[in-house]
Nucleic acid binder design. Structure first.
Lengths: 215, 215
DNA sequence: TGCCACTGAATGAACGTATAGTCAACAAAA
DNA sequence: TTTTGTTGACTATACGTTCATTCAGTGGCA
C-alpha cells in the first residue's frame, strides 16, 4: 500500500526481523490514533502492507504482539533515561537535571510513545504482564532517582516527613502526570514549564536546584 | 444473583433510576477489575443481576453506557473539588490545601474511580467525546486553581519563567500523576506524601505553603 | 558455475467465537 | 386497560486464529 519496496538485498533473517519491527511500529501508531481497542490484527497487517495471517505468524497471539509492543517502548525509554544518568563524571545535580529534561522533551516525550504508556496503564490493573512491567519499571526508575539524590545528600524536608524515597517516588509521579497532560491537553503545559515545575519541587528539598540556568 | 431485593415500595420512576445507577456502578467496578476492554454488556447485566437486554434499554448503545459512566465519575469528582474551594470565608491558602487533600485522599482518590479516569484517558485520544470531557474538566480545574492562586498573589517565580497559569497546570498534572502512581504502584506513594509533594512544589512560588500543619 | 531440492516467510480463504444490538412477549404498575 | 420496565432468544458481524498453499531465497551437489 504505502510504497515501501524493500527489495534491497536483505538476508532472510534480516527481512524477518524488519517485518517484526514494522508490525510493532504499526501497532504503536494504531494505539496512538485509535487507542488500544482500535488495534485489530487485520488493521495492523493492512497498514504494514502485509497479509492477514502475518501477525499470528510472527507473534503467536494478539496478546503477545501487544506485550512485545509495550516492551519495545519500555526498553527505548529505559535506555534513554539510564543514559542520561550514566556519566559519573558529572555532578549528581547536573545528571538529575539532564534526566528530567530527557524525560519531558522529545523524542522520549513523543505523542505516540506517551499514548502507548497511557494505553497500557489503563489496562494494567487487569493484565498481569502489563502491570508487572509497569511496576518493575517504576521501581527501577525510582531507585535510580533515589540513588542520585542520595549522592547529593539527605533532603531538607522541613516538617514534611518526606524521606529520600518519598521525594523520588513523587518525582516519578510528577513526570507521569506531565505526560498525561501532554496527551489530554496538548500544548497547555510546555515541556519547559514541566521541567521548571520538577525543579521547583526538588528545590524545596535540595536548594541547589533553585537556580537560573537549565542544562 | 447477588441477593439484592429492592421490592421496597418504589415508584416506577424511582426503580428505573435505581437500575440505571446500578448499571453504571457495575460498569465502574468492571473497569477497575478487568479494564475497559473487559466491559461486556452481558457481564454488566449479569453482575447487576439483570437480563441481557437491559443495558440497551437504559442506554441505547454500549458507547452511551460508557460515556455516562465516565460522566458520572467526572461529576462526582467535580462536585468534590468545587466544594473544597467554595467557602469564600476561608483564606485562599487554606482552601487550596483543602482542595489538594480532597483530591489525593479517599473517597475521591479511590481505586475504582482512579481506574476509570486512567481507562478513559487511555482511550481519550481517539474518542472525541472522552477527549472533550477530559480536556474541558482539566481546563475548568486549572482555571479555578489559577483563580485561587491569584487571590494569594503573583507567583515568586525566580527565573523559572512560570506564570500563574503555568503553576496551576503543573499542579493539575502532578495530581494526575499521583493518581497514576496509586494505580500502578499501589502503596508506594502514600497520600500524605503526595500532599506534601504538592505543597513542596507550591512553596517554591508561594512561601506561605512552606509550613508545618496541614488542614 | 549452474541446477535443483528444500526451507520457511508470507498469503488469504475459511472457521469459530464473542458480543453488540433487536424484538416479540410478558407482567406489574399506573 | 394502557403503559412501560424487563426478559431472553435471536441476528448480524467483527475479529482472532488456523492451515493448506505459494514461491523466493538458500545451500548442497554435480
Amino acid at each position: 500500500m504505502a510504497g515501501s519496496e524493500k527489495k534491497t538485498e536483505l538476508t532472510r533473517a534480516e527481512q524477518k526481523k524488519a517485518t517484526r519491527r514494522k508490525l510493532i511500529e504499526t501497532t504503536i501508531a494504531i494505539i496512538a490514533t485509535d487507542g488500544l481497542s482500535g488495534v485489530t490484527l487485520a488493521k495492523v497487517a493492512e497498514l504494514a502492507g502485509l497479509s492477514r495471517g502475518i501477525c499470528n505468524y510472527h507473534f503467536r497471539t494478539k496478546d503477545q504482539l501487544l506485550l512485545e509492543t509495550f516492551q519495545t517502548v519500555y526498553r527505548e525509554h529505559e535506555r534513554a533515561w539510564k543514559n542520561a544518568l550514566a556519566d559519573q563524571r558529572m555532578p549528581p545535580i547536573h545528571r538529575l537535571k539532564r534526566f528530567i529534561r530527557v524525560l519531558l522533551l522529545p523524542p522520549v516525550a513523543d505523542f505516540n510513545k506517551v499514548a502507548v504508556w497511557l494505553a497500557f496503564w489503563g489496562e494494567a490493573t487487569n493484565r498481569r504482564n502489563y502491570l508487572y512491567l509497569c511496576t518493575a519499571m517504576d521501581q527501577d526508575f525510582e531507585n535510580e532517582v533515589a540513588a542520585v539524590l542520595g549522592e547529593i545528600g539527605p533532603p531538607r524536608n522541613g516538617s514534611s516527613g518526606m524521606d529520600l524515597g518519598a521525594v523520588a517516588v513523587a518525582l516519578t509521579g510528577m513526570i507521569d502526570g506531565f505526560w498525561v497532560q501532554y496527551l489530554i491537553a496538548p500544548g497547555r503545559l510546555s515541556p519547559e514549564h514541566a521541567i521548571s515545575a520538577c525543579l521547583a519541587y526538588l528545590s524545596r528539598f535540595y536548594p541547589e536546584f533553585c537556580d537560573t540556568d537549565s542544562a
